[in-house]
Amino acid sequence: MAELTWKSTGDRRRSTRAWRVRGSAVTVAVIVLAVLLVPPLVQLDEQAVDLAAKLRQPSLAHPFGTDDVGRDLLLRCVYGLRVSLLVGVVAAVVATVIGTAVGAAAAASGGWFDRVVMRVVDLFSSVPHLLLGIFIVAMFSPGVWPVVVSVGLTHWLSTARIVRSEVLSLRSRPYVDAAISGGASRLRVAVRHLLPGVLPQAGLAAVLMVPHAIWHESALSFLGLGLPTHQASLGTLVQSSRGPLLAGDWWPTLFPGLCMVIATLAIAGLAGAWRERLNPRRRSELML
C-alpha cells in the first residue's frame, strides 16, 4: 500500500498543555530546592539590617532590592516562601486529614449521623472562613502554629463534602454490588474499592489547598494577626511594604507578590495535570 500522508489534529493544544505542565514542574522544583537549600548553604542572616543600604532599587548586588531597613529582599523572599510553604503544606495536610475522615465517616454511616455532620459543615461554611480564621488566631499569640491551626480548621469543610459525595457515588456503583455479591466484607469493600477511589481526589484537594492556604496565611499576616512582622513570610513582606509603596518604592511589594502568584500558578498547574491523569481517559481518547 502506498504511503499515506497524515495530518494531525489538535496538535497545538496538546503541546501547550505539555509545556505548561513542564513549566509548572520546573518552577515548583526550583522553589522547593531554594527554600530547602538556600538557608543552610548561604549562611546569610536574612535579618541583617543595613541602614546604609535601605530601600535600594533592584541591582546586581540586591536583585530584588532592599527593604526600609536595608535587608536584602531576595533573601527575605526565599525565607518568606519557606515559611509560607511550610504553613501552606501543613495546614493543607491537617485540613485534608480532618476533611477525609469526616466525609468518609458521614458517608459510611449515613442516617442521622450523616445528616447532623453535613448540617454542621453547612453551618461552618456559611461563615466566611477568613472571619473564622481570624477568630481562631485571635485566641493565640502570633506565631506559625496558630496560623496553621486556623487555616487547617477552617478548610476541611470542602474536602469533607468532596470525599463524602465521592464515597456515596462510588458506593452506588455496580462494581461495589458485584463485590458484595462476591462475598466481600464491609472492610474489604472500603479498603479495596472505596479508599483507592477517594484518596486521589483527597490528595488532589490537598495539593490545590496549598496555594489557598498560603494566601490565607498572607491575608492573616497582612491584617497583622498572623505571623510576627519580623518573621519573613510572603504575607508579612507585603504587609511591611505598604509604607514604602506609598512613597513610590514599588519593589518591596512587587517581588513578594510575584513569588506568591508564581508559586500559586505552578502548584495549580501541576495539580491540573494530576487531575487529568486521575481518570484513566485513554480509552475515551480513542473513542472505541
Binding site: 499515506l4 500522508t5 497524515w6 495530518k7 494531525s8 489534529t9 489538535g10 496538535d11 493544544r13 496538546r14 481518547e285 480513542l286 473513542m287
Partner: peptide, 16 residues
C-alpha cells in the same frame, strides 16, 4: 463519525 465532525482528540492523525 467523530472524524467527520472534526471531534477527534489531540493525538489523532487523519489521511484522505
Amino acid at each position: 463519525a467523530s472524524a467527520l465532525l472534526g471531534l477527534l482528540p489531540g493525538n489523532a492523525e487523519t489521511s484522505g
